[in-house]
Design a protein around this nucleic acid. Structure first.
Ligand SMILES: [Zn+2]
Length: 323
DNA sequence: CGACTTTGACCAGCGC
DNA sequence: GCGCTGGTCAAAGTCG
């Protein structure tokens, strides 16, 4: 199953940027706020635009169209999506626009834990340790004391692509595949092959849109992308190490044809406060990324200075245009 | 021969 | 308690 990605698939979609713009304000003010609950506490004024999160092309459209983000993609939030995101959501508004990409958050596990699980944050890191079920999967018994399973943040991308497995610069080992209910397409489970890195990813095709692939990342890489270090294709367009210890492959990092449409699906496990802390923490230790919260400043200046999570999501190259 | 995929079985959570 | 379902394991197979 080689990658025949970059190929046909409609060479270019009519970009209905207008609609995009219409959505933008909407989502940034209401939808996203609701979804992410972005520290709304004080940053209301900076309803961090969706764009911000994605490092929206808006600013770059004119200057750097490296990935043709603006041209071939439009952003569309998962307004209709409920916490369950995943396939349910994607299916929905997707067809609205020929090219779309959207984000949505998902409290992995419990959509309600927003409040009561804030304490788990620390554990989350340790989680890995107990992750390894020492004995095959016949683990004696999970520590009943602990919470069932705290999961790490998840992040989903919807991409229009013919190939299931999108190249994102990391190496993955497939460890399972299951049929998906209500979908003729199976879901594949992948794990980062790097030792000590337990990032996982799930790939499935939308039943409504066979051409759309939903990739869900779980966890954060604790290492740079091998693809970047090597002479992989990614190395050509991407900086050696974008961001901090944790980095989600960015749509641009995926070596897809620029025409593929990608939709993001933020999966933040807990309250935004928690997330911020979490990511900040990670980045801090990881690579000295700006530690203050990003997400708050709607101005492009914010993008120029602290990309924060975006940095992990979007290739720095887009942001800075060079390293 | 190492890295990765395939695939059936196993396990745990959840709803009834 | 039972059955369904999502997620994972691991042996066997495939590929370069
Ligand atoms: Zn990794």
């Amino acid at each position: 199953m080689e990658r025949k990605d970059c190929l046909k698939m409609g060479d270019s979609f009519p970009s209905s940027s207008s609609s995009l713009l219409d959505y933008y304000p909407v989502m940034s003010n209401s939808t996203l706020t609701g979804l992410f609950d972005f520290c709304g506490e004080g940053e209301k004024n900076g309803s961090l635009g969706f764009m911000e999160l994605l490092n929206m092309p808006q600013d770059f459209s004119s200057s750097s169209s490296v990935f043709d983000f603006d041209a071939s993609q439009s952003v569309e939030p998962f307004m209709t999506s409920k916490p369950q995101v995943q396939e349910s959501s994607e299916v929905l508004n997707a067809p609205a626009t020929p090219n779309y990409s959207s984000i949505s958050s998902e409290s992995s596990g419990g959509q309600n834990d927003i409040e009561h699980s804030t304490k788990d944050e620390d554990d989350e890191e340790e989680e890995e340790e107990e992750h390894q079920k020492t004995n095959k999967h016949l683990k004696p018994k999970k520590t009943s004391g602990q919470k069932k399973k705290e999961r790490e943040p998840r992040f989903a991308f919807m991409t229009k692509s013919e190939v299931d497995h999108l190249e994102d610069g990391f190496r993955w080992r497939k460890y399972g595949q299951k049929a998906v209910k209500n979908s003729p397409f199976p879901r594949s489970y992948y794990r980062c092959t790097t030792a000590s890195c337990n990032v996982k990813k799930r790939v499935e095709r939308s039943s409504n849109d066979p051409s759309t692939v939903v990739t869900t990342y779980e966890g954060q890489h604790t290492h740079p992308s091998p693809g970047m270090l090597r002479s992989g294709p990614a190395a050509t367009t991407l900086p050696p190490y974008s961001g901090g210890g944790g980095s989600f492959p960015a749509p641009g990092q995926m070596l897809l044809s620029p025409h593929d449409q990608t939709h993001f699906d933020f999966s933040i496990p807990l309250s935004c406060g928690y997330n911020m802390g979490y990511y900040t923490n990670v980045m801090n230790s990881g690579a000295g990324a700006p530690q203050h919260l990003r997400f708050r400043n709607p101005n492009s200046s914010a993008l120029l200075t602290d990309y924060g999570l975006l940095q992990d999501i979007v290739p720095s190259s887009i942001i800075k245009k060079e390293e």
